[in-house]
C-alpha cells in the first residue's frame, strides 16, 4: 500500500514536471509581441447616433472639433448611418465631454450600446484565449 502510494506520487510529480517544462518551452518559444513590449496605451471607443442628417459641412466641423480635442486619437463621421465614432483615452477625456463637443454643432446624441447588440461572435470563447494568454505571460522569461 505504502509502495503504491509512493509510486503514484512519483508518477504524478513526473507528469507535473514534464507538463511544466513543456508549457515553459511553449511560452518562451517566441519573444513577446511587440505590442506587449511597447505596452500600447489602451484606447476606448464610443459611438453616438445623431438625431438628424449630417451635411458635408457638419461632418467637417464635427471632425475638426473632435480631432482637436485632447485625448481623442481618431474619429469617424458616417453620414449614411448618422453616426459618429470616436477612439479616445479615457484618462484624458470622458464620453460625456465628447458628446458635448458634438452637441455644440446643434445635434442631439445618443450613445450606441454595443452590449445589447447580438452580432456574430468569434467561435472560440474569450475566456479560453484569455487563459492561454495569461499563462503564456506568466511563464515567459524573455
Amino acid at each position: 500500500m505504502k509502495t503504491l502510494l509512493i509510486k503514484s506520487l512519483k508518477a504524478l510529480t513526473l507528469v507535473f514536471t514534464i507538463t511544466l517544462i513543456v508549457l515553459t518551452v511553449w511560452a518562451n518559444w517566441e519573444s513577446p509581441k511587440l505590442s506587449e513590449k511597447l505596452n500600447l496605451k489602451p484606447i476606448n471607443l464610443v459611438v453616438f447616433n445623431l438625431n438628424k442628417s449630417i451635411s458635408i459641412s457638419d461632418s467637417t466641423d464635427i471632425t475638426k472639433n473632435l480631432i482637436s480635442t485632447n485625448g481623442v486619437t481618431a474619429c469617424s463621421v458616417n453620414p449614411k448611418s448618422n453616426a459618429v465614432s470616436v477612439t479616445f483615452y479615457d484618462d484624458v477625456i470622458t464620453e460625456g465631454s465628447l458628446g458635448k463637443v458634438i452637441e455644440g454643432q446643434s445635434f442631439k446624441t445618443s450613445k450606441v450600446n454595443f452590449a445589447t447588440i447580438d452580432g456574430p461572435k468569434c467561435p472560440i470563447p474569450s475566456e479560453y484565449i484569455d487563459g492561454l494568454t495569461t499563462l503564456k505571460r506568466i511563464l515567459c522569461f524573455r
Binding site: L40, P42, I43, N44, L45, V47, T73, A74, C75, S76, V77, N78, K80, S81, A83, V84, S85, V86, T87, D90, N113, F114, A115, I117, D118, G119, P120, K121, C122, S126
Partner: peptide
C-alpha cells in the same frame, strides 16, 4: 485607430465588432 473608428460607425459591419466595442479589454 482610425480604421476602428470607421468600422464602429459603419452600420454595415459594426455588429461583427460589437463584443470588442462593448469591452475595453477586448478592444485592446
Amino acid at each position: 485607430d482610425q480604421f476602428i473608428a470607421n468600422v464602429a460607425a459603419d452600420a454595415r459591419i459594426n455588429a461583427f465588432f460589437a463584443q470588442a466595442a462593448a469591452d475595453p479589454a477586448r478592444l485592446k
